[in-house]
Nucleic acid binder design. Sequence first.
DNA 1: ATGCTCCCTGAAGTCGCTACAGGGTCAAGG
DNA 2: CCTTGACCCTGTAGCGACTTCAGGGAGCAT
Lengths: 137, 137
Amino acid sequence: MRIGELARRTGVRVETIRWYEKSGLLEKPARNAGNYRDYDAAALARLSFIKRGRDLGFSLEQITELMALTRNARADCERVDAIARQHLAEVERKIVDLSSLRRELSGLVNSCTGGAIGECDILQALAPEGPPSRSEG
Amino acid sequence: MRIGELARRTGVRVETIRWYEKSGLLEKPARNAGNYRDYDAAALARLSFIKRGRDLGFSLEQITELMALTRNARADCERVDAIARQHLAEVERKIVDLSSLRRELSGLVNSCTGGAIGECDILQALAPEGPPSRSEG
DNA sequence: ATGCTCCCTGAAGTCGCTACAGGGTCAAGG
DNA sequence: CCTTGACCCTGTAGCGACTTCAGGGAGCAT
């Protein structure tokens, strides 16, 4: 199949597929008479794997390693598990960070009383003299 | 003060300060006899504002607009509030996305039984044939 | 003179794409 | 035969927000 069909079937954009090839994530496919890329079922499977990994937030580097592990049938599951656990830990850390950010931001947003800039609590919270809470430093 | 002291006082790296200047976020400071940047208290205040905004996850574009609003005392607080609310909405959306990601990933990670690659549930979940649950296509 | 810390500029690299310029290929229709 | 249009090609530049690197200069202490 040509690149457009592969794109439709996987939900990955044509430019992104070419970019994956350029960066070594996908093997260079055969070319047909008109120099168009010609993909087979194996390429479809590999790209689907990549897409699923990206949807789960793995980096391309992590996906590269996961794909290499699938080819090495002798290796055991531990490294795969470690990659997944590490990614999970990152995701959880981001959730914690964003949650405390949300608390601060909703405090800011609720402080707005619709007055003029001079009284704007949001800008005052951002300014160097005024930390977000009622204390002064 | 020189750039190194400004960096220490604000917690912003030297290179980042120079980058903010290049991209127009900070004004070009005076130079001393040795062509070193020479910052005053106003620059310290501006950079602290930027740092605080970055810590709260605002983009440089949003921070630029917020700083412009502080200079225009006639404008009212509405635009500031709108920027903050929009950012809060983005943060909340990210939290939702990451939370569903976490659910999927912890499902994956718990499926690992420590066996060989052929039985690795994580890789099978990533593979094109197998969606994250135990069904087969 | 030497060493050290700090500073300078400009360019390139990071991640994961996206967009664009300027073309080539191929099938259908007039 | 020619045009239209969908699709494809390569190569390069751009995004955000930096970080890193190469190759030097300033100024102070020994």
